[in-house]
Design a protein around this nucleic acid. Structure first.
Lengths: 219, 219
DNA sequence: AAATATTTTTAGGCAAGTCTAAAATTTATT
DNA sequence: AATAAATTTTAGACTTGCCTAAAAATATTT
């Protein structure tokens, strides 16, 4: 099965808007996300419905069928793998890669995707900390959380920031925290909610503000 | 300037058919190459002409303008860089990469192309031995020749075969000749046109038939 | 519950790119 | 030079995906 770029984009949008294909999505929500008009969305939804990629009842919104979900997940897998490639291999910053990955995700070749996956050593998450589905469309269980929610003793790795100001990034850099940095939460201080964490190089205490702005994956 | 995929494909086809944009190309030749109908080609040619990418006179064929040539070369650069990536980094065979590169060549991002070029260490030729234009659209001077045309003393590297039968490829493999293999022509025998060549590993004599079927680039 | 506002759908149109069939032009052949 | 053959162009139609404007359905206020 091969679909047009547009069909793929609609399915991906619906997938994201429906919380992994679970709930129903309104025409307007799709239009907003794809920067198109509601009438265009209605047109396309009818086509998707004919192709059995979504279930549609007039005025009631849509939801993905299993095969629609499958297509969406395949696109997401490609998008995230390409993002890893751009950041890890071509030294792009993690905030530069989205638009390029948006194009690369439509390249058709299963062999290419699998080879890329292998080349990147089967990454479990993209540079934004979002999980990468495997070849069979399965997501690894771990999920992105804010560092301040992590219990003492846990080992995790840094996958993203909320505050992406130059100031904050510089602060992290100075302290040896970067994308992919492994860290262990040594202890948490009840009083001011600060945390002591240990990286490969050193141990340090960070403020609640810092911990609130760091995304990590628990190993 | 950004063009549709279709426009890019037409320009690339015309470039190849016109011997690097030099001579005029007929409607039918383009149709044959793009597996489309002559009438479709006429339609598109008019649009390309409106955009000043080709010069067109009814019934007289087309040729590329400078800006048409520029666009074509940019696509060719991308195509060939991606081919190198697929072969060198993702371990594709050189005869598997064309269709995938055909898709990748349309990805739009100058930064991506330049980073890829750097990542691949500025390759001068693709896996088929065709030269890769640089960032400014300039081709490196060296060109692909048949090994039997190379003078004694010259150092070159293998970039392709004419006979791509399994038998021939196996023979080359057995003798340590592969894509990218450096070799020096030690001497040429007038009598039977055989050649003695030296690779990193060993020195051997090859028949005229073999030398006739190997493409090399002279360093 | 009626009136109003919002959302969604329909109807009709447009641009890109393709097609077939027929007409125009050029090229080759007798 | 006239005719036949091949090439190229025109004319008209189709699909995909988008649009605007108006109508229909649903949701929200009063």
């Amino acid at each position: 099965m091969s679909f047009t770029r547009s069909v793929e984009n609609y399915l991906k949008a619906i997938y994201h808007l429906s919380d992994h294909g679970v709930s129903k999505v309104s025409t307007n929500a799709i239009a907003r996300r794809l920067k198109t008009k509601a009438s265009s969305v209605t047109d396309m939804i009818k086509k998707l419905s004919d192709k059995k990629l979504v279930v549609y009842k007039k005025y009631q919104g849509v939801h993905l069928t299993d095969s629609g979900k499958e297509v969406a997940v395949r696109i997401i897998r490609k998008h995230r793998l390409w993002e890893v490639f751009l950041v890890e291999k071509l030294n792009f910053a993690w905030d530069e890669v989205h638009d390029i990955a948006e194009q690369l995700e439509h390249i058709e070749s299963e062999k290419l995707v699998d080879r890329l996956d292998e080349f990147l050593e089967f990454p479990s998450h993209d540079p934004h900390g979002d999980p990468i589905p495997d070849k069979w469309g399965e997501f690894k269980p771990s999920k992105k959380v804010v560092l301040s929610d992590v219990d003492a003793g846990a080992i995790c790795f840094c996958v993203g920031v909320i505050d992406s100001s130059a100031k904050f990034l510089r602060y992290l850099d100075k302290n040896g925290i970067a994308l992919g940095t492994q860290l262990k939460v040594v202890s948490r201080e009840e009083f001011d909610k600060s945390m002591t964490i240990k990286t490969k190089g050193n141990t340090m205490t960070i403020s609640k503000l810092t911990a609130d702005n760091l995304y990590v994956i628990i190993n």
